[in-house]
Write a protein that binds this DNA or RNA. Structure first.
Length: 207
DNA sequence: CCATAGATCCCCT
DNA sequence: GGGGATCTATGGT
């Protein structure tokens, strides 16, 4: 059991509980992964900022109407944005993964991105490039090997920060709703200015 | 450091 | 033909 097949959880709760999960990519024989440190919830038909607002249905949005755990990849300009569908066909909602802390294959991610350190994965387009995510992943499942979220490997944030979503102007109350979740103090959170914690904001692991 | 412009694909109307 | 859940380079302070 995990947050993506627990039907009692709302999309906001899933977005928050995905923090600390390991996002894994296996492509071209290369394993890369990172701990999720920032997410956003998109609430479907009622949410003016969501692509499926008012039940909008186009070929592009097919994945949004699939089962929970389906991957919805959207391309904007030259970048790919990686989402996980959270509900069902009648409630086309999703969580956008906005940033990860690199774990496996940091050198591979570095090569794919052409940047080092924090700049490698501190944004949705950046992490997609670092993990080699493309439109080929659109419509696949989040438990298939190419790109998966490993439910067994999990870190726990000391504190979760809730803020307004990034890049959502002029959408009434949806511009200000606290639907963005991030690990407080983690340096890989996008558009960060404040200081980072020495432990990157994770709880200590007891062995 | 901050703000801003331009890139550059599709998709959708 | 317009525009976007972004990113980068650039130019100023």
């Amino acid at each position: 059991m995990n947050c993506l097949n627990d039907k009692s959880l709302t999309t906001e709760e899933i977005a928050e509980s995905l923090l600390g999960s390991l996002l894994v990519s296996y492509k071209d024989g290369q394993l890369t992964s990172g701990w999720i440190v920032e997410t956003e919830a998109y609430l479907g038909k009622v949410d003016e900022a969501c692509h499926t607002f008012a039940g909008k249905q186009t070929p592009r949005l097919m994945s949004m109407y699939q089962d929970a755990g389906t991957i919805y990849v959207y391309r904007m300009h030259t970048h790919h944005l990686f989402n996980v569908v959270t509900r069902s066909s009648s409630e086309p909602q999703a969580v956008l993964i906005r940033a990860i802390e690199p774990h496996d294959g940091e050198d591979i991610q570095n090569i794919r991105r052409g940047k080092k350190g924090i700049e490698m994965t501190n944004g949705p387009g950046k992490l997609a490039k670092a993990l080699g995510i493309t439109m080929d992943d659109n419509g696949t499942g989040v438990y298939e090997p190419a790109v998966m979220i490993d439910p067994k490997r999990k870190k726990k944030p000391v504190m979760v920060e809730k803020t307004a979503r990034i890049g959502i102007p002029n959408k009434g109350k949806w511009t200000d709703e606290l639907l963005r979740f991030s690990v407080k103090g983690n340096p890989y959170v996008s558009r960060k200015k404040g200081k980072t914690e020495i432990d990157y904001g994770w709880e200590a692991v007891l062995n």
